[in-house]
Structures are given as structure tokens and as C-alpha cells.
């Protein structure tokens, strides 16, 4: 999932987190996670002072953003000392699958 400024939102993106009025969880909830964005919905968010949203995958690439391969390499480095241990091997697998899923659909894409 990725948190993006509302100005980068495009119809077709899927919300990964609930959206609240005024960008605060104390504000009124305006749209639930899992919803697909439409132009009308984006306009409504603008009117409700929503500044940023969190969407599924990694649709917006900026210079300096790390790719899935970068994330996986860093994960391997963190587990370098303990990957041979059975419980840590399970945990490594859990994180690897999580990262692949979180970046799903965008893994081949590189920063422009």
C-alpha cells in the first residue's frame, strides 16, 4: 500500500485505508477501504479537506523510491544472521510474501 497526496489520486485506484473528513481519525468517516476511486469521489474528498489517501499497491513512483527488489534485498540483509533458524525462516517467508503482496501489480515498474 502507498500513502499519496490527493492530487496524485486517479480513478480506478483502490483505497487501502478508510478515509476520514479533515484527514483525522476523529473526523467523520467518508469512505471505507476497498472502495474503487472515481473522479466524483476524488472531487468529494477535495471538498471535505482530505489531503492524502492510502491506496493498494504502489501506483506512484518518485525518484528515490525503492523497488520490490530493493525491499527484498534489505529484508535478506536483516535476516542474514538468523535465516537458518526454523522460526526466523518462517518469519522471513511471512515478510517476503507480505512485501510481494503490498507491491502487487507494480513490482516490475521502476521510478521514471
Amino acid at each position: 500500500m502507498q500513502k499519496i497526496p490527493l492530487s496524485f489520486a486517479k480513478s480506478g485506484m483502490i483505497l487501502a485505508r478508510d478515509v476520514f473528513r479533515g484527514d483525522t481519525p476523529v473526523g467523520m468517516p467518508v469512505c471505507g477501504k476497498g472502495s474503487e476511486l472515481t473522479n466524483a469521489l476524488i472531487t468529494r474528498f477535495e471538498q471535505m479537506d482530505v489531503k492524502s489517501i492510502t491506496v493498494e499497491g504502489h501506483p506512484v513512483w518518485e525518484e528515490g523510491d525503492r523497488s520490490l527488489n530493493d525491499y527484498l534485498r534489505e529484508l535478506d540483509n536483516r535476516f542474514a544472521k538468523t535465516i537458518q533458524e526454523p522460526h526466523n525462516a518462517v518469519l522471513h517467508c511471512v515478510y517476503k510474501e507480505y512485501l510481494i503482496k503490498a507491491m502487487e501489480g507494480y513490482s516490475g515498474q521502476q521510478p521514471e
Binding site: R78, F79, K81, T82, E85, H87, V90, H92, V94, Y95
Partner: peptide
């Protein structure tokens, strides 16, 4: 530490101990 969040002094994930795995009844 697995997630790489924050900085606790080193970058290595410690061993997930057997006893913790059993007490908390962990599985994948």
C-alpha cells in the same frame, strides 16, 4: 526489527525464541 522500522542500534533480526513461539502458540 524484521520490518526494519526505526533504529534500535543494529540492523539484524534477533532469533525468535522457541519458548516465545510455544507460549504464544505461534504459527505461520
Amino acid at each position: 526489527k524484521s520490518s526494519g522500522f526505526g533504529d534500535s542500534g543494529d540492523d539484524f533480526v534477533p532469533s525468535l525464541q522457541n519458548i516465545a513461539w510455544d507460549i504464544l502458540k505461534l504459527d505461520k
